[in-house]
Amino acid sequence: MNAELDTIVIGGGQAGLASGYHLQKKGLRFLIMEASDEVGGSWPLYYDSLKLFSPARFSSLPHLKFPGDPNGYPRRDEVIQYLKYYQEKFQLPVRINQRVTLVEKDGDGFMVRTMAGDTFRSKTIINATGSFHTPYTPAIPGQESFQGHILHSSEYRNSEPFINQRVLVVGRGNSAVQIGVELAEVSHTSLAVLRPVQFMKSMLLGQDLHFWVKTIGFDSFPFWRFGKTAPSSGSVIDSGGYKEKVLAGKPDQQPMFTSFYDEGVFWANGTKEAVDTVIFATGYRPCLPYLQAIGALNTEGRPVHQAGISLVPGLYYVGLEGQRSFASATLRGVGTDAQFVVKKLLHHLKIRSVHS
Rank of each mutant, 00 (worst) to 15 (best):
R99H: 09
R99D: 06
T101F: 10
L102G: 02
L102A: 04
V103K: 01
E104M: 14
K105V: 08
D106Y: 11
D106E: 13
G107C: 14
G107F: 10
G107V: 15
D108Y: 10
D108F: 10
F110V: 02
F110L: 01
M111I: 06
M111V: 08
V112Q: 02
V112Y: 04
R113V: 07
R113T: 10
R113Q: 14
T114P: 00
M115W: 09
M115T: 05
A116K: 08
G117P: 07
D118W: 09
D118C: 11
D118F: 12
D118P: 01
D118V: 05
D118R: 13
D118H: 12
T119I: 14
T119A: 15
T119M: 15
F120M: 09
R121K: 14
R121D: 02
S122R: 02
S122E: 00
K123C: 08
T124C: 06
I125K: 02
I125D: 02
I126A: 05
N127I: 10
A128E: 04
A128L: 03
A128W: 01
T129V: 09
T129C: 04
G130K: 01
S131M: 04
S131A: 10
S131Y: 03
S131W: 00
S131P: 01
F132V: 01
F132T: 07
H133N: 08
H133L: 11
T134R: 15
T134I: 10
T134P: 05
T134W: 06
P135T: 02
P135N: 08
Y136N: 14
T137S: 13
P138M: 06
A139R: 10
A139Y: 10
A139C: 10
P141C: 13
P141I: 13
P141Q: 12
G142S: 07
G142R: 08
Q143M: 15
Q143L: 15
S145T: 15
F146Y: 12
F146N: 05
Q147M: 12
G148L: 05
G148T: 07
G148W: 07
H149R: 09
I150G: 00
L151D: 08
L151P: 04
H152C: 11
H152S: 13
S153A: 13
S153Q: 02
R157K: 11
N158D: 15
N158P: 08
N158H: 14
S159H: 06
E160G: 09
P161Y: 14
P161T: 09
F162D: 00
F162P: 00
F162G: 01
F162T: 00
I163E: 15
N164P: 01
Q165W: 06
Q165N: 09
Q165L: 09
Q165G: 06
R166N: 13
R166A: 11
L168K: 03
L168T: 04
V169H: 00
V169Q: 00
V169D: 03
V169G: 01
V169L: 01
V170K: 02
R172H: 10
R172G: 01
G173N: 08
N174H: 05
N174G: 06
S175P: 01
S175W: 03
A176S: 14
A176C: 13
V177A: 10
Q178R: 11
I179E: 02
V181H: 01
V181D: 04
V181R: 01
E182C: 15
E182Y: 06
E182N: 09
E185M: 12
E185G: 13
V186Y: 07
S187P: 07
S187F: 10
S187Q: 13
H188P: 03
T189V: 11
S190E: 12
L191F: 07
L191N: 08
A192E: 02
